[in-house]
Design a binder for these strands. Structure first.
Lengths: 168, 168
DNA sequence: TGACAAGTGGATACTCGGTATATATAACGA
DNA sequence: TCGTTATATATACCGAGTATCCACTTGTCA
């Protein structure tokens, strides 16, 4: 959450609510709704770390708006994030851990686990197709969906592999 | 962490240190080392939730060992975990968010970002190959590595897609 | 033999991401 | 005018993960 907020602030000062809306506008059609609280807690951490500054703007009647802007340190931090490649991670897989441990404990048939998981992935793929139909012209959403589909296809291939190895 | 511990306890009562060793034995060759603290905090949460019970075992000189075992509720919870498919998730992608926001803020060239990310994925693939050479005969590790490789290949395909769409 | 590392066994404090919920007020339509 | 939605922020809480500390035993090597 830190860096997305910094990236948005690179476009100019903004207060929490604006940042939330900007994120929802860009990703809201496919990503789960953002919790407002997280925006504010993250902003206060960024401020604590000296990456953003805070100007209070008085409003009639309402509580003050807090307008955040990037500091030089924040701009540098953001530059580093953009310059560095995003780490790949992704070695740990929840289903695989379940498969291995459930087999070891003798509490499930691996073949059944794999079959059920395959059904779930296929179902998820179909749901992605449905979502894709509702996002007319939204390039960002379309790409996100295709990325998810590619990952699901990789997961399905992996299930096949697991089936072969564990069957033999 | 909760369910893996429950799954291990399905094989019989054990104390924290044994659970840590069991996990490391199965996954240690490829997954990052487990922090012991997390085992104990998770066990205490499981106990708070009534999923495991705790017998203190006195030891000469040392502090007591705490031997945990599954309760009926814990066994039921574990059964539910095994029976349900693991959710797919994976719509949110850190690199993609970076790509979209950095482009919008005008602080990076999308083509460059993609090129750098591709290099990083290719490098990660090579590193996976290296790790694969060191895990002779460990079926679990081999599968985990092949799964990671499949995901990286999906990521690479996705980068190609992003390049096409953003280039046009 | 004496020192130092490694193993056994456990606990606490802290950070971050995420969720839920509380609190005001304004605008707007039924 | 009454309820809903939008504006705007804040706090409390949880789980995952990391770092660090404690205490005692065993092995090992100079």
């Amino acid at each position: 959450m830190r860096f997305p907020l910094l990236a948005l602030l690179a476009g100019g000062p903004a207060h929490g609510y604006e940042l939330k809306q900007a994120l929802e506008q860009r990703f809201g059609s496919v990503l789960p709704p953002i919790n407002a609280g997280q925006i504010y807690t993250t902003l206060s951490r960024l401020e604590r770390d000296g990456l953003v500054g805070d100007d209070a703007v008085a409003q009639n009647g309402r509580p003050n708006k807090r307008v955040y802007s990037l500091t030089e340190a924040g701009r540098a931090e953001l530059g580093g994030w953009v310059a560095d490649a995003t780490p790949a991670a992704r070695l740990k897989d929840d289903f695989f851990i379940k498969l291995v441990l459930a087999r070891a404990a003798g509490i499930a048939d691996p073949a059944e686990l794999i079959a059920r998981q395959r059904d779930a992935y296929l179902q998820a793929l179909r749901e992605l197709d449905d979502v894709a139909l509702t996002t007319n012209g939204d390039e960002t959403a379309a790409l996100l969906i295709e990325g998810a589909a590619l990952h699901l296809e990789a997961d399905l291939k992996w299930l096949d592999l697991c089936e072969q190895r564990l069957g033999s």
